[in-house]
Each structure stands twice: as C-alpha cells, then as structure tokens.
Nucleic acid binder design. Sequence first.
DNA 1: CTTTAGCACTCGTTTCACCTGAGTGCTAAG
DNA 2: CTTAGCACTCAGGTGAAACGAGTGCTAAAG
Lengths: 353, 353
Amino acid sequence: MELTERKKKVLRSVVDLYIRTAEPVGSKAITELPDMKYSSATIRNEMAELTTMGYLEQPHTSAGRIPSAAGYRLYVDELMLDYRLSMDETKSISSAIEEKMQRVDKMMEKVAKLVSQATDLPAISVASRHGNAAVKRFDLIQAGENSVILVVMLSNDEVVNKLIKLPVNVSEADIKILSALLNATMAEIPLEEYTPELLDRVMRSAGAAAALVPVIVDFTTETLRRQGTANMAVAGQMRLLGQPEYRDVDKAQRLLTSLDEEALSNLPAVMQNANGTKVLVGPENVASELKDTSVVMTKFDIGDGMQGMIGVVGPTRMDYAKVTARLSCFAESLSKMFAKPEQQQLPAPDKEA
Amino acid sequence: MELTERKKKVLRSVVDLYIRTAEPVGSKAITELPDMKYSSATIRNEMAELTTMGYLEQPHTSAGRIPSAAGYRLYVDELMLDYRLSMDETKSISSAIEEKMQRVDKMMEKVAKLVSQATDLPAISVASRHGNAAVKRFDLIQAGENSVILVVMLSNDEVVNKLIKLPVNVSEADIKILSALLNATMAEIPLEEYTPELLDRVMRSAGAAAALVPVIVDFTTETLRRQGTANMAVAGQMRLLGQPEYRDVDKAQRLLTSLDEEALSNLPAVMQNANGTKVLVGPENVASELKDTSVVMTKFDIGDGMQGMIGVVGPTRMDYAKVTARLSCFAESLSKMFAKPEQQQLPAPDKEA
DNA sequence: CTTTAGCACTCGTTTCACCTGAGTGCTAAG
DNA sequence: CTTAGCACTCAGGTGAAACGAGTGCTAAAG
C-alpha cells in the first residue's frame, strides 16, 4: 500500500493531536483542523488504511486512533514540523545556563534541573570522560601546626585537594622533598602503573614524611578512579506525574524508581556513535522499564576528553518537536560555554563589590 | 473527662492499627487484639469518649475512627512503645554510613538517600554552619605556563581551590608577593569586612599580579557566602507514592514538588533549640504544603561549627516508633563518625575545575 | 475513480437505583 | 460498670439502562 502525501498529513495530524490531548483521535477531530479539506468519511478511510499499515492503533472498535510505535518513529523521522524556539526561549535557556554554572562540581545536577524545567519532563544529564586521566602535578602546602594540604592537578586541568592532619610534625624541607618525589615518580602516568612496587619505592624514598604517603596515594587513586566513571544526575522526576499516562500511581512509581537507578546508565552508550539528537520510541528502548516510554537525548562537547549528554524521559506521547528543539538548544549553549574556557576564568566586569 | 489508662490503651491500639492498615479502625478490630478483654460495646463507648475529647475522628457516621492530629500528638509523646532496632538493623545502618562517606562533598545526598532507604519515606538531610566563616590562609601555586592554582583554607579547615588561567604570564615572584598580600589583608576577617575600600587597596598593592585579584576575590566571596548557607539534600521522594494516602496523583505531585523547594528550608529552624528527635504532626507544620503531612527530624553533631539534621516526611499516619528509632540510630552513627578524630574522616575535600 | 452523506453498529463511559455490610449509638438487662 | 441486642447510617459495590463518540460500509454524487 502506498503512503501517499495525504496519508502522511493525516498521520501527522493524528500524532500532533494525540500529543496535545492524550486521547484517541477521531476522524471528526481531524476534519476540524484548518487545512483539512476532506470529510470525516474520507479521513476515516485513510485512517483505516494507516491502521492496517501499522502506523495507528485502535484501543477498541468504537474509539479513535492512537499512534503506534512505528507511527511515532515515522513522525519523528519525517513528519514532524520543526519547532522554532522563540528568541525568548533561546535566550532564557542560554542565560539560565550561564548563570548557574559557577560551581562545576554540581554542574550536572544543575543542567538536569534546567533541562527538566524547560521540557517539563524528567531529565538526565551525564558527563563521562573518555581517555585516561593522570596526575599532572602534585603540590603540598604546609598549613599550620601539623597539617598539610595536598593539591593535585589532573591532566584535564581539574584540581582537587585534601587536608591531611598529621600525628607528628613534618618540616617544611621534608615536604618539599616529598613533593618533588611525587612529581618525579607518580605524575604523568596512568592509574594502572600505580603498582605496589612503585608505591613501595616511593614509600622508602619518602624519608621523614613517609607517614603521608599512604594517605596521598589513597586519595590520588580514588580521585583517578572517579575520573573514569560517569557522573550522572537526574532531576524533575515528579514532573512525570503531570502526564496523564501516569495517573496510575503504580505505573508512575515503577518508572520513577527505575529512573533513580542504573537503568539509565546504558543510555550514554546508545549515544556513543550517534550524533545530534536521538529519539528512542517506547519498545526501541533496551531497558525493559522504559518499554512504554520515550527517551530523547543529545550529546554535547565538554572538551578535555570529556563528553556530555542530556536527555529527557517521558511518555511515548510526548511533544517530540518541542523537546528535541529545546534539547538541541541546551546542547548548543553548553558546548558554547565549554568552548570558551577563558570567559569563565577572566574577571567578569564586576557585578558588585 | 478523665483520660483513663484504658482509654490510653484503646487510643494506642487505634493508632497502631491505623498505622498498619491505613483504614478507619472499628471497635470490633480492637476487641480482636490480644490483651483486650472487653466487648466491642465497651470499646465503642471508650472510642466515643475519645472522639469527644478530640483524640479520634470519624470520617462519617458508619465508619471506624482515625486518629486526629491531637491523637497522634499524644501517641508520639506518651503512648507509643519504643521500637527496638534489631542488632542487624543497627549494624546495617552504621555500616552503610561508614561505607558511603568517602566523599564528603556529596555527603548530604548520600545520607538523605540512606535515611530514605531505611525508612521507606522521602528524607531530607541538611548541614548548616553556624558562626561566621573566614579564610584561614591563601596559597597560590604556579601551575605551568600561565595558570595559577588558588588554594583557600577556611577557618573550619575546609579547603577549596580554583584553577585560574591568565591571559598573561605572571612571574613566580609576583605570585609570592600577591600571596603574602592576601594573607596579610584578607585572611582571618569575616566576609563583611571585604569592603570596596579594602579590595581597592589590595588591588593597588598587588602590582604585576593585579589581574588575578578580582578573580580571587570573587571566588573567595562566593565560597564564604556559600559557607553561610545551608547545604541540603532530598532523596527518595517517590517513596511517597507507595503510601496509600498518595494514590491521588495530584495530591502526591503537589507535595512532591514542594519537597524540592524551599518549603523545607525553614525546617532546620525548628530544630534550632530542640534537642533529640522532634515530631511535627500535620497541622503543626508551618509550611502550608505540609499541613497534612508529618515530619520527623533529628539533629546530629558535625563539629567545626557545623550542625546537621536528618528528617523524613510522610503521611500523618506513619510508623512514628519505627521512624524515630531509625532516625536516632542514624543520628548517633553520624555523630560518632564525625567525632572520630581520625584524619581520614576529618577533611572536606572539595573539587573545582 | 474519488469523495461524501447516511446509517446501523460497537463498545466504553456515565448515571442511577438498589443492595450490602461494616460500624455506630442507644437501651436495657446482667 | 459491662455487655448483648437492635435499629440506624452511609460508603462502596453491583448491574441495568441510557449515552455518545467513533467506526465501517454502502450507495449516491462529483
């Protein structure tokens, strides 16, 4: 059977309407659309054929039609009209990002929150590093009586620190020596090369400050290990409850609890090769919890060997056009933000004293 | 009217049962309890009196009774039998805490998650500092080409850092000078004394490294300001959906969205003077969103001028005995953890990019 | 050959009356 | 003071009937 232009138009209308109303769409509703110059009977015939073609479904004989998974697929791939963000929307998204990004360690959380807010759906945001992190340099600062601050700068220019309190006093000179030793032996090498032998050697060469070594090594190892793992945040879960398909509390709860968990951790994998924005409709999802849920995701660049992803989860009946548009806008703003590293550091033409 | 022992016993039974079943409790159900040697008629009389005394309510004439707010109040204050945590429970709580507390900057989140898990209710966890924070010392580390790492140690021994990239090169000597200058002028004073005049003076004395000053000041100011504000986390919101009183999605959503927000930010205030565990029953809550919700909270000590609070939110019909027991156990474990003078636990590593 | 008006039919939803049963308050006897 | 008994109340469940949105099919019109 042929998928004529008119069929496409009807299908698009059905999906659009269903997205708006969350209720089966009847032939009459379609005819009332502007630009639909056919009678309900004609539409009915078209809808019947779209049904046999598998793009629409009928919950029961005397109800309207709803899009099938295949219908949604076709819709997002070919039919849906681009949603044009208004200037206002674009502005408010990018300014929201700029504004909220002071603290990078809570960044993913903030991003997720913002995305969720903009789409009115639960959102996830993931930052993962590819490539191996290493320590670029160690610094030790004597900080009062018997405290030392360890400052570790990583290969991606991230800096972490730890205050170490000592049981005994260590002289400034000892610390200088240890610092040099650390930089000579443990910097610029990947985590795998932190072998017991190496550590043993460092320990023995450390002299007076040897007590510090285990703490330093532990902290460094832990930090590097953490660098490898993805950093993910979920926000706005309860927005799901606003969706009529989740009036059923049990259903909502099932999905919501799985949103917290690992179910999502393989989503980034899907994005690995794909570019731009990707839409997973219902059953296309691998995770069984998401079987009747759609996911829209976009990648963005962070640089420094990191890659980010933002996405939202919602009912298969979601406003794909709007959501993809908003996500893309976010991704763009984020990429832009990370592309200009200077901006962030340089003196902002001061706000207040 | 006298509140006899028997009345108390009946009231306790009603609350206990209602907590278990979430349904109005009838006189017959009470008589079926072991240890209740009266007929249903007697119980009915007692219940009638408890109703006129305001401890019980009747949803409608032909239904059983449910506890009123006053009833709950009396229950938690006098009637409820202590819930004894099994050894297993205690152990699993404290070991969960020990295990999860490596990263202190995400601590509140983890605590909230653990508490929520243990009580099967949404949980909040807040850490707030009282007393004014100040900078104990500044350090600047030259880190390669034109980067400088700023390390700031606060009066409570927390250490934060920031990588600053410069447009121009600054010599090691300049940095030394600036560092000394900062320590001389801006350390050991509260945030309020960061007046425009002071900053102006620093700026002028800074010489070659003057470009750095605004960045440093901004960062420091922001950090100190953040020290003053409470740090709060919410977890397990969706557990609320498991409670029968929130089968109504709208109701659930209303509460859940308010859980995210500031509604809770005045909860810590309630704890300010109180000690031990505090229970707020329904209308006793100030925030209107929580009017038919109960909150159970406990303080714990962090030391270093910080104070923590954990709490859960749930339907007025919640298992107060169990919840308070669990919360207390948590609080104790946490206090113990922070009291430990071991160096591993003390410092608060903070990471910034 | 396509479109449309008309019509009988389907089937989920709503409405309403009725019944049921848990629970009550009261009274009178133990 | 306690309890058995009884009439009464009322939320919730059940089922029949009416409703109406939407369909598929047919036959006439374009």
